[in-house]
């Protein structure tokens, strides 16, 4: 019942006395930007495969459903038809990259999950870019399915669908950067989810309704949405003689917005992770 009163020796013999530590011990290396980005990308993609496939179906069905509805009011092969097919295809990207990514980062932040990344020697840009790239590339099949269904429904040419391979990553960069920034900056998780959903609704309405019919303020709002330029670029490729310079210009806007919004998201990550 009595207790031994001798303090136990601290293990590790050798060093004598608790002197100040020797100056600056060795630091383990940092993870470099691209390998770390690759690791985050791989992890996120596997995660998406487990958890997000049903949501990708939802996104695709939503877009196909919208096209079926619009088929009743929009003539096949018309300019409006191009806008509808293009808008519905890019909507899949908006759903996943903007809405789901805002939700993901909102949740991660609320549950303290950012600590995991913040205590690893990894550049914040790797985490944000890796997650954004995974979410964006995850949308590729859904976008193609939607575009093919749309072309069939509205009798549009299939020839230039390859341009989606540029539209998805560039619109994806712009939208996922925005989604990540919303998720990381929203003061509360519910607000992050709400902002992501509003952003997606805006992409839906402003992307699919043909621009000519919009009142001026809504037109400006439309010009502010990065998805608009992806929609415009994709729609233009259905023309018999596409204006490739215009397509390139629109895609450049996506790329520019992508750089800015991913930069913003990286800043937001740093701010949220280290307080």
């Amino acid at each position: 019942m009595s207790v031994v009163s001798v303090p136990q020796p601290v293990p590790l013999a050798g060093a004598a006395g608790a002197e100040p530590a020797p100056p600056a011990g060795p630091l383990a290396p940092r993870a470099r930007l691209f390998p770390a980005l690759g690791a985050v990308y791989t992890a996120q993609l596997s995660r998406a495969r487990v958890a997000r496939i049903p949501l990708l179906f939802v996104a695709t069905f939503q877009s196909v459903g919208i096209m079926v509805l619009m088929r009743g009011v929009v003539g096949a092969g018309s300019g409006a038809a191009r806008a509808v097919v293009s808008g519905s295809s890019v909507l899949v990207v908006a759903f996943v990259a903007l809405n789901l990514l805002a939700q993901y980062f909102g949740q991660l932040r609320a549950a303290g999950g950012l600590d995991t990344y913040a205590t690893l020697p990894v550049p914040p840009a790797s985490v944000v870019l890796g997650a954004a790239a995974a979410y964006a590339s995850f949308t590729v099949p859904g976008t193609f399915v939607t575009a093919i269904a749309g072309c069939a429904l509205f009798h549009l040419p299939f020839a230039n669908l390859w341009v989606l391979l540029a539209v998805v990553p560039l619109a994806g960069a712009a939208l996922s950067g925005l989604g990540a920034a919303l998720g990381l900056l929203a003061p509360r998780q519910e607000l992050a989810t709400l902002a992501g959903q509003l952003g997606m609704s805006a992409a839906l309405l402003l992307g699919i309704v043909p621009p000519g019919n919009l009142p001026a303020p809504i037109g400006w709002l439309r010009d502010l949405m990065p998805s608009t330029y992806g929609v415009q670029a994709f729609a233009a490729t259905f023309a018999p003689h596409p204006d490739w310079t215009g397509v390139l210009a629109d895609l450049s806007v996506c790329a520019g917005v992508g750089v800015v919004s991913l930069g913003l998201a990286t800043w937001a990550f740093r701010r949220a992770a280290y307080r």
Binding site: A28, P29, R30, R47, Q107, G112, G113, T116, T119
Partner: peptide
């Protein structure tokens, strides 16, 4: 930022890894 290069940290939360 040097802490991450010196420390292996196990936090109370694991949500970042949960789906892996």
């Amino acid at each position: 930022d040097r802490a991450a290069r010196l420390i292996g940290y196990l936090g109370q939360e694991s949500s970042a890894l949960d789906e892996l």
